[in-house]
């Protein structure tokens, strides 16, 4: 908690199209678990083992419009974290997925320019997000995005909503 948190995350990308829904990200039958690592075994299972293998070797999910549409299941975000994904960069998100990502400490950024630039560069390569600076770097350039409001940035820095609350309770000395 005392070291400055890493605000720049990234690496190898895996790309998806528009309207990737929660049932494809993590099928409902696996919601009996809340362990990110266990869930990661089944992330994107409907799309087949090749996609699952690629996911595990990736650090950034790149997607088109409305990523994470559908269910409010928080595991759609945490299963990605469990698979080693550090950030999702999309043209746009469904609102519940966005909340769940921030709340589970997964960097989620809307940056259509970066998504388009990666596609123009052949759709493969690395992408890096600095959520403190508000930049996305990828083949073809560095792009800005609207910075998070302070409250959301603090949640991300603490690794998610629950660790953030625990930290603030500890600071206040609140006994709950």
């Amino acid at each position: 908690m005392t070291t400055a948190p890493e605000t720049r995350v990234g690496g190898k990308t895996i790309t998806f199209g528009d309207d990737v829904n929660t049932d494809v990200i993590i099928p409902g039958r696996y919601l009996v678990s809340i362990d990110p690592v266990e869930l990661a075994e089944h992330a994107f299972e409907p799309l087949g083992p090749e996609v699952q293998k690629e996911l595990k070797a990736s650090r950034v999910v790149v997607a088109g419009r409305n990523f994470g549409c559908g269910s409010a299941r928080e595991q759609a975000a945490s299963c990605l974290t469990g698979a080693g994904v550090r950030a999702v960069v999309a043209t746009s998100f469904s609102r519940v997925f966005f909340r769940n990502a921030i709340n589970t400490g997964l960097v989620a950024v809307e940056c259509p320019q970066a998504v388009d630039a990666l596609a123009a560069a052949g759709g493969r390569g690395e992408m890096w997000v600095d959520y403190d600076q508000g930049t996305v770097e990828t083949a073809g350039g560095t792009f800005g995005f609207a910075p998070y409001p302070q409250g959301l940035r603090e949640i991300l820095q603490d690794g998610g909503l629950i660790p953030h609350l625990m930290r603030s309770f500890a600071q206040e000395g609140t006994v709950r």
């Binding site: 928080e74 519940v96 629950i162």
Partner: peptide
């Protein structure tokens, strides 16, 4: 509610919206 279809509460003039389980816990 921990369910995306919490929008349904608008049928009775309420503002309903879905969130994840961490947010309900919070």
């Amino acid at each position: 509610g921990t369910d995306s279809h919490s929008t349904i509460y608008g049928a009775l003039g309420a503002f309903g919206t879905g969130v994840g389980f961490s947010e309900i816990t919070a």
